[in-house]
Every structure is written in structure tokens, then in C-alpha cells.
Design a protein around this nucleic acid. Structure first.
Lengths: 219, 219
DNA sequence: TAGATTGTTAATCGATTAACAATC
DNA sequence: TAGATTGTTAATCGATTAACAATC
């Protein structure tokens, strides 16, 4: 029996995608001074099933809910943040400092999620001549392996064009990357044990477009 | 019986997300002069099951595959592009011209998917004083309803902070938007018939982080 | 107490995968 | 012909939802 690609030891990928929405809602409650919350209330706020909410909470937290009251908001927030790793830093490198890559480099919000982009790489010498974007330096591609191995980086972000994505992916895997955030619109082949999280604009647009076509075809 | 949120008349959301990957691979084949391709070959290239590939093709295309040969690459490309609506333009407006919003406005690649960002809106007057980003103007929020209704815009892109996302969403729905691409990290409540496609950095990072934790916890 | 809520076990539902006859 | 492949029907698998006893 093999573990599905969709499952990460017990908790499904779908559930993982939901977790930040729980946390966001819990923080909204906290900000407005609410101390406890019930599964049915969370379910209503997030358009989910209340049993699913309880199961998700049970995966992430050891908080026991009190009948008639629900769960302690502060404790839930603590457990969700711990589960999501927001308290300990994950270092990442980024390959491909084009428009998208530089946008990500500039983005300050990753720190809140425990992600730290330590460096970027690009094969274009124009970008690598000692220029800084945010706090990170853009290095030439030749430095990739050395830096990843020395700093024991385990997360790689791919922002290169589709045609070089697989080659970059292979290099990342070879130098110790264990999880890849892939913004190139291509399927990457990786060995067992390496995770690829795809971020594909075209996929999202496919969902939007199909909805418009199917629900409003004869305008 | 009600249709699941996950299904868009017959084709599942999961399948829709796969379609651009098929199309990308088919174009790679085309570029290298390959004329026909079999389901098992596609399946291998995209790490999918070959039966799933056949079913996805059957949804999108009326091409009949020939035993021992497979499918005609050119015909498949044509049908996939038609299904995904790449040949007819969908107009969209964007709300929230911050860093992310402006990155999207600048992005030239949407045209290839049949998406055209016609205008952006922001409540910050500093951004709306006749400045152009790309070809689109940034308008003050008051112009939102009029422009959407006059131009019959059906796609709205939300790039505002989480705290104002729901309010913006409500305004978009009220002025005829039928599909929302939501980059705010919040769950939006919408009426039946309105689709929300969420793009949440935190959700993706949750998947990466859980993988690292579960597969490599004791480094 | 009554009623809302929890937590768990069982049922359902839908997507994926296997099995297999038909075809070139 | 033999063998790879198609296309469809049946089986499996996993996620979601329903049912229900326990609890405050």
C-alpha cells in the first residue's frame, strides 16, 4: 500500500488548504474579543460542513471542545499556527528573477508564514550584478548548488519559463531541495519524497472560464 | 439533488485544473513535430492515470482516438483551446492596485488565455490620478458599478486586503460579476451561481510546510 | 432539565483506477 | 496475426456528510 500523493501522513491536501482559512477566521474573532467559538459557527462562516470542521480541528489541535460552548479561540490559534509552522522559519531560495520572481522577492508577507527567501538566482547577468531586491541578492545560476547545500535549504521556488522549469527542478532536487513551489505552467517530474506545489494561473482561469460558459452561455 | 460546488456541469474542478497541463504538453509535442500521441504517453508525461487521460480528453474533445496510434495532436490542441475559451476574450476588472494588483495589471500573459483586464480600481487617490499601469487606468472606487454594468464585465479580480475583501465582493456581485478571482486570504460569501476561485499563498505554503514536517521532521 | 454542542462511527458520494471487450 | 491502444463499465478508494450517543 502506498500513500496517495494527495495525503501528507493523515491529513489530506484538501484539509491543509483549508487550514489558513480557519486561522484567518479565528484571528478575526480574536480581534473582536470573542473568546470561544463552536464548530457550527466556524462552518457557517467558511461555508463548510460542521463535522468536517471538527475533524480538521482534531487533526491540528488537541484542544477539547466543550459541549454547548465550543472551542477556546486563543488555544486554537496557537495550535493552528504551530501546525502550520508559522513560529519556526523555513528558508527558501527562488530561481528566476523575472517580473513574477521579483514580485515574490519584494513581498514582505511571507515572514508571517514562517517563510524566508534567502536568495534568488537568475541566468541573466544583467540581474545578477550585485543588485538587491528587498534584502535578497540575485546570484548567477552557478552558485545555486553551493549555496543550497551550505545553507541546507529545503524549499525551492521556480519562477523560470516553462522551457527551463524541468532542468531547474532537477538541479534543485540534486542539491537537497525537498519541496518545490512551482510557478511555471508545466508538470514537473520529481523523485518520490519530493513535493511539488503548483501555482498555475491557467488552471485557475480554466475554472473561471468554465463557470461562465456553463452557467451563462446564452447571455 | 444539488450540484456540488466542485462540479461545473459534468466536468469536475480537479479535471479543469488539469486541462492546461494537457494543453501545455500537447504544444510541446507539436513544437517538436509530433503528430499523434497516445493516452498512456500523455499519462506518463503528466504523472496521471491513462484512463483518467482518456476521460478528460472525452470531456473536452470529440476527437476519436485510433487504436495503436492515439490522438491527433493538432486536433486535440484545437479542442482544448476552444474548451478553455482561449479564442474568445473574457473581460475582467481588478480591484486593489497594490503591489500584487499592479503586478497582475502589468502581466502580459493573460491575453494568451483569453483574459483581458480592462480597468483597475483603488480607493487610494494617489493611485488613481490619471496614472497608467500597462494599458489600464486605475479608477476610484466610485466608478466601479457604472463601468462594470456599462461594459457588462463578468469577471472580477480581488486584490484588496483581507479586511475589505467581503465588502468589495458584495459590490462586485451587485453589479453583475459572475466569477471572482480572489487573492485576498479570506473566505468570501457569495450567492448561488457566483463562482469564487481562491488564490491563497498561505494555503500553498501549508502544503509545503506539512510535507517538510512529516517527511523530514528529524533532520 | 432541555438543548446545543462535541466526538465518533457508519453511510454516502464522487473521483480515480481496474478490468475487459472492441479495434486497428 | 499479435499487440498496443481505445472506450466503457465495474470496482475501489478516499473525502465528505449523516447519524447518534455522550456531555455540559
Amino acid at each position: 500500500m502506498r500513500t496517495s500523493d494527495n495525503a501528507v501522513r493523515g491529513i489530506s491536501k484538501q484539509a491543509l488548504l483549508r487550514l489558513p482559512y480557519y486561522l484567518n477566521y479565528l484571528k478575526v474573532l480574536q480581534k473582536s474579543g470573542v473568546e470561544t467559538v463552536s464548530a457550527p459557527k466556524i462552518a457557517a462562516a467558511l461555508s463548510l460542513n460542521e463535522v468536517q470542521v471538527r475533524k480538521d480541528i482534531a487533526f491540528v489541535s488537541s484542544c477539547a471542545g466543550k459541549p454547548k460552548t465550543g472551542f477556546d479561540v486563543h488555544l486554537l490559534i496557537h495550535d493552528f499556527e504551530a501546525f502550520l509552522g508559522y513560529d519556526n522559519v523555513n528558508e527558501a531560495i527562488l530561481v528566476g528573477a523575472g517580473l513574477l520572481g521579483r514580485s515574490l522577492l519584494q513581498y514582505k508577507g511571507f515572514a508571517a508564514y514562517g517563510l524566508h527567501l534567502v536568495a534568488a538566482f537568475d541566468r541573466d547577468p544583467a540581474l545578477t550584478e550585485l543588485r538587491f531586491y528587498g534584502e535578497q541578492k540575485i546570484f548567477p545560476m552557478e552558485k545555486l548548488e553551493d549555496l543550497c547545500q551550505r545553507m541546507r535549504i529545503h524549499i525551492g521556488i521556480i519562477c523560470v519559463p516553462e522551457t527551463s522549469a524541468q532542468a531547474v527542478c532537477d538541479r534543485l532536487v540534486a542539491c537537497g531541495i525537498r519541496a518545490i513551489w512551482n510557478f511555471a505552467p508545466a508538470h514537473l517530474i520529481v523523485p518520490d519524497g519530493i513535493l511539488v506545489q503548483n501555482e498555475n494561473v491557467a488552471s485557475s482561469l480554466a475554472v473561471l472560464s468554465a463557470h461562465l460558459k456553463d452557467h451563462y452561455s446564452e447571455k
